[in-house]
Design a protein around this nucleic acid. Structure first.
Lengths: 207, 207
DNA sequence: AATATAATGTTGCAATTGCAACATTTATTG
DNA sequence: CAATAAATGTTGCAATTGCAACATTATATT
C-alpha cells in the first residue's frame, strides 16, 4: 500500500523522468504486448487488467489478474515464438511504463525522487518473488488436502490469526491450487468433519 | 555465465565494498539461516549447496539445489515461524553476501564497479523470476502428458532445437514436475509410441 | 424487482495417477 | 576393479482426483 502512495505523491508533483512515462487506457484496450528482450516494467497505478495468452492455434487463456499496485511486463515471462502475451484493461487503467535500466542507471537531478521509486519497484519485485516461490511450494504438495492446509497456513501466518477470510472465490482458489473445484469442496468437507478446520462460506478457522 | 565473470574480475582486483563481503565454507557447513526481514542476498561464486527446510516436528526437506552462479537468501522465501530454512554447503563453497540496500544506494568512489555488480545481480533476479513463472506454468498443467510436453517445449525453445538433452536426471525431472517417476516413465513411453517424441536415455526429440 | 450470471455445494462414476515391488543398467566410491 | 549406490525401466493394482450433472444460493445487470 505504501508503494502506491509514493507514486501518487510523485504524480501530484507533476514528476517526470526520461526513463518512464504514464498512460491511461479504456476498458478493453491493449495495455502492452510482451516483447522479447524489451525489458519494460509496467506498474498498474489504477484499475485492473488481465494477462492473456493466445496460442499458435488461437486458444486464449487468462494467466494472471492484475490489480492496483501490481507489476507486470515481459521481464517476468519467458517469451516463446508460438504464443502471444497481452495485458488487457478490464476497466479504466492508469499505467506507468518504466524502462529496465531505470533500476540501474541514475539520471541525476532531473529525478530527485529516482531512488525512492527504484526502491519501491525493487520491493514490489521481491514481494512478487516471494509470492511466486510460495505458489510453487503449494503446487508441489502431493494431495489436495496438503495443498489446502499449506495455503491455509500461509494465510493464517500473513493475517497473524487462525481465523481468516479467503481473498479469492472458492472457484479461483481451486484454479490457484490447480485442482478440481468439486474435489476441493469435498476435501474441505472432510477436513471440517475431521476437525482440522471450521468453514463458513469463505471464513476459515484452523485448529 | 558472463555474470560469474564480472565477479571473478572484481575479486581478482581485490575489490571490496562496505555493503558486501566474501566468505568460504567447507562441505557440510551452514552458509546461512534465513532470517525474516534481514534482506540479505547471497551469490554462490563457487561450489554447490542445498536449501534445507526443517519443520517444527523435525522433518527435513531439500527445497532447492544451488550451483555456481545462483542467487539465494531470505529475500526469495516467505519465512514462517514454524519452519527453519538453511543453506548447507555440499562441497567447498565461496559465497558473496550482499546487503539488500546495495541495490538501491550508491557508495560513490569506493566501489567504482558498483553499477556493474548491481546490474549483474538484477539480471540474475529477473532470470530467476522468469524461471519461477515458467515452473508455475508447467506445474499448473492438468495431466502428466501436458506437463511433459510443456517442459519439453520450453527446453526446445531454450536450445533452439527440437532435439535436446535433459539437464536433469529423470528422477529429478519427476520431482520438478511434481509427478510420480514411474507414472512419468509410463507416459513418456506412450508419447514415444504415439509418435510425439523420440527418447534415448535423456536425449529427447520433439515432432 | 426481475432476470441473468456467477459462485457454492453435493454426489456417483470413471480414469488418470500414485504406489509398491521388482529387474536392469549406469555411476560412484573405497 | 570390486562393491555399493543411484538412476532407469516396467507392470499390476488401488485410490485419489477429475468430470459430469445437478440443486441451491449469492451477486450483477437491466
Amino acid at each position: 500500500m505504501e508503494n502506491i502512495c509514493v507514486f501518487d505523491t510523485l504524480f501530484e508533483e507533476n514528476f517526470l523522468c526520461p526513463k518512464m512515462y504514464k498512460k491511461s487506457f479504456f476498458k478493453g484496450q491493449n495495455i502492452t504486448s510482451y516483447v522479447e528482450n524489451r525489458k519494460q516494467i509496467c506498474f498498474l497505478k489504477e484499475g485492473c487488467a488481465d494477462l492473456i495468452r493466445t496460442d499458435f492455434n488461437g486458444d486464449v487463456t487468462t494467466l494472471e489478474y492484475y490489480k492496483k499496485g501490481d507489476l507486470f511486463g515481459e521481464l517476468f515471462y519467458l517469451i516463446t515464438s508460438n504464443t502471444q502475451l497481452n495485458v488487457i484493461a478490464k476497466e479504466e487503467c492508469e499505467v506507468l511504463f518504466i524502462s529496465y535500466d531505470f533500476l540501474t542507471s541514475k539520471c541525476n537531478r532531473i529525478c530527485k525522487q529516482h531512488n525512492i521509486i527504484e526502491e519501491t519497484i525493487l520491493n514490489l519485485i521481491f514481494k512478487r518473488m516471494i509470492i511466486l516461490t510460495n505458489h510453487i511450494e503449494i503446487l508441489t504438495k502431493k494431495s489436495i488436502r496438503e495443498k489446502l492446509l499449506s495455503y491455509f497456513s500461509t494465510m493464517a501466518f500473513q493475517k497473524s490469526s487462525k481465523t481468516f477470510t479467503l481473498p479469492l472465490s472458492l472457484t479461483a482458489l481451486a484454479t490457484y491450487l490447480n485442482i478440481d473445484r468439486s474435489a476441493m469442496m469435498r476435501e474441505m468437507k472432510y477436513l471440517e468433519e475431521e476437525g482440522f478446520i471450521k468453514k463458513e462460506k469463505r471464513k476459515i478457522t484452523l485448529f
